[in-house]
């Protein structure tokens, strides 16, 4: 069931990722065409760019906005799936359900990153192939850079990617934590509070208190997590990212444990008739 639910949620989420990619592509094409039909030029610094380099630049620029948009969409989707009755009735434990939900979002981000990389690569190749100025600029920059591939740089790139994934995961988990804990606290408030605006205000207030408590907690816990790892990572420069990776893993695991407890105990699907 874990695998089948994963596939179902992943399909649902990559559909949204595909919409974002489509909008990004249309936006990049539209702005390139508009720039050349209205002013006839696209400047990057003092450089007057051709059609394909401009398109490449806009694809690159919009990729950051698209990534941010998709991240917000998946955050919202995660929380909606957590209270989806049709899905919660599936024969799977709540813990596996929650993990399925969060991990499909990470998988969706990975899928999005791969498609983005391919898209950026294709637009770069188009510019490189069909724009002589861009081609020579790139070749000159490459020759000047004296780029040499070494294993240490490769490891740093891999570590950075792992750190990015762990950061994205932590943000998803923290968002769930704020949502779950405020919902759990509200379920202990008197049922006589029927005013939705008042409940909304109480929830926002609770979220602020929880954020404050979270910041204080993280500040207090970081040295505890930091200290044992610092011993191992002090000496070598290539291991710079291992320490933050370890700390992120600890926080991710901590929040997974807290969220699973809250999800199992308090989070009920929405009841609609």
């Amino acid at each position: 069931m874990f695998g089948r639910l994963f596939a179902t949620l992943f399909t649902r989420k990559i559909k949204k990722a595909n919409y974002v990619l489509l909008v990004q592509l249309i936006a990049a094409i539209a702005i390139t065409v508009l720039s050349f039909t209205t002013s006839g030029h696209v400047y990057f610094g003092r450089q007057d760019l051709g059609v394909f380099p401009s398109f490449f630049m806009f694809v690159l620029f919009f990729s950051f906005i698209a990534a941010l948009a998709l991240y917000c969409i998946t955050c919202n989707e995660n929380e909606a799936i957590n209270v989806n009755q049709s899905l919660r009735l599936l024969p799977i434990s709540d813990s596996k359900y929650y993990l399925d939900n969060i991990f499909t979002s990470i998988a969706t981000l990975a899928y999005f990153a791969c498609i983005e990389a391919i898209g950026i690569g294709i637009s770069f190749l188009l510019a490189f192939q069909f724009d002589g100025t861009f081609h020579s600029e790139v070749m000159t920059s490459y020759e000047k850079s004296s780029f040499v591939f070494n294993v240490e740089d490769f490891i740093v790139v891999i570590q950075s990617l792992i750190l990015l994934v762990l950061f994205c995961l932590l943000f998803y988990l923290m968002l769930s934590f704020l949502n779950f804990s405020s919902q759990a606290i509200i379920s202990f408030l008197p049922g006589s509070i029927k005013n939705k605006s008042l409940l909304g205000f109480i929830r926002v207030f609770l979220v602020f208190i929880l954020i404050w408590a979270l910041v204080k907690g993280i500040q207090a816990l970081t040295p505890i997590f930091d200290a044992p790892f610092a011993v191992f990572f002090q000496s070598t420069s290539s291991n710079d990212l291992l320490e933050p990776i370890s700390i992120f893993i600890c926080f991710d695991l901590l929040f997974i444990a807290i969220n699973l407890f809250l999800f199992n105990q308090y989070i009920e699907p929405k009841e609609k008739k």
Binding site: N84, S86, L87, R88, P91, I92, S93, D94, K273
Partner: peptide, 19 residues
């Protein structure tokens, strides 16, 4: 008593609100 095992043998008339 396990929730997952219970769900396996129960068919609940879901309102389809999740779709």
């Amino acid at each position: 008593q396990s929730v997952a095992d219970r769900k396996r043998v129960i068919s609940f008339s879901d309102s389809l609100s999740g779709f």
